[in-house]
């Protein structure tokens, strides 16, 4: 930033990414003590203004919420009864899915049949949202390795970014040796049986990522990195999205048809499972250590 340029707010600079542009700046910040302030001591007049604003704020928000509650209750009590078969929500769309979904898609679970075929585009967008969320969190928190920093600086960085415990808890390790295989097996069962029983890509991905997180917590980052390095992580989640997009594009180009519909559920199911699993595990790993 040149001197002649107009001085912008520090907050704006930080949002634009000018403040934390490289490592040195961050290290400098890490040495500083925490910048906590006492509001009353700082600037009395401004502080008092702030406090009075917050007092009125509490009252106004409570009032607003109560008004909203009254309006909502009034609306809700005039809805059709809970569990009424003749309610307008149970219209011909759901009738179509229930009566013809089984023979057209070959999937007993009407929910899976619906979200992966009839509403496949919706779910494709959903997978893209997950992919982008993982990428966005990676942009914010990614701190790869310890390349090009001295040992002292590494210690400083570790204080904030590395939460890995130094020693393993014996109880957690022994328990997870028993539990993790069963969790993963159940996840795979939900993934593959999603066509004919409750489950499907989303649930299975969540369970699998739960198993991975437990494994990571019990045995540490090095154990997980042996089979899920950053390269493999990126590969799996990109591959999932590509399989989904490819299968769906093929389905559209070949003009659908009942014979084809019954075959696209399984690949899409697995693809969604891969994306969800990698996203959830990526969140945890980035939060814990700043890298995959």
């Amino acid at each position: 930033m040149t001197k002649g340029k107009k001085k912008t707010s520090a907050f704006v600079e930080w949002v634009n990414g000018e403040r934390n542009s490289h490592l040195k700046a961050e290290l400098h910040e890490a040495h500083e003590p925490r910048r906590r302030i006492e509001i009353k001591l700082d600037d009395e007049k401004q502080g008092n203004q702030l406090l009075s604003f917050f007092k009125g704020y509490h009252f106004l928000t409570t009032l607003l919420c109560l008004i909203l509650l009254v309006i909502f209750l009034w609306v809700v009590l005039s809805l059709p009864n809970f569990g009424d078969p003749a309610a307008p929500t149970n219209n011909e769309v759901s009738r179509e899915y229930l009566v013809y979904g089984m023979e057209k898609t070959g999937s007993e679970n009407a929910v899976t049949a619906m979200i992966f075929t009839y509403r496949g585009f919706d779910t494709l967008g959903e997978s893209c949202v997950l992919f982008l969320a993982a990428s966005a969190v990676m942009m914010l928190l990614y701190q790869p390795g310890n390349r090009g920093v001295t040992a002292k600086e590494r210690l400083e960085l570790k204080k904030f970014y590395d939460l890995e415990p130094r020693s393993r808890n014996y109880l957690v390790t022994q328990m997870s040796k028993v539990l993790v295989p069963f969790i993963m097996l159940y996840g795979l069962y939900v993934l593959i049986g999603g066509e004919n029983s409750p489950g499907g890509g989303f649930s299975a991905g969540a369970i699998l990522s739960g198993g991975l997180i437990l494994y990571r917590h019990a045995f540490g980052h090095d154990a997980t990195r042996r089979f899920l390095s950053e390269r493999v992580f990126t590969f799996i989640r990109t591959l999932g999205l590509c399989i989904y997009a490819g299968v769906f594009a093929m389905y559209i180009v070949l003009q659908g048809g009942d014979a084809l519909t019954s075959h696209i559920i399984m690949p899409i199911d697995v693809a969604v499972g891969m994306v969800v699993m990698c996203t959830m595990y990526g969140f945890y790993s980035l939060f814990m250590k700043g890298e995959i």
Binding site: P198, S203, A206, G210, I213, Y284, F287
Partner: peptide, 24 residues
């Protein structure tokens, strides 16, 4: 379907993410 997903995500993953943030 929702029960399975919620048990894994709402009670598991979200709680862990909150905990890690609090620790940080």
């Amino acid at each position: 379907d929702l029960a399975i997903t919620e048990a894994a995500i709402g009670a598991g993953v979200t709680g862990i993410l909150f905990y890690v943030t609090l620790k940080k």
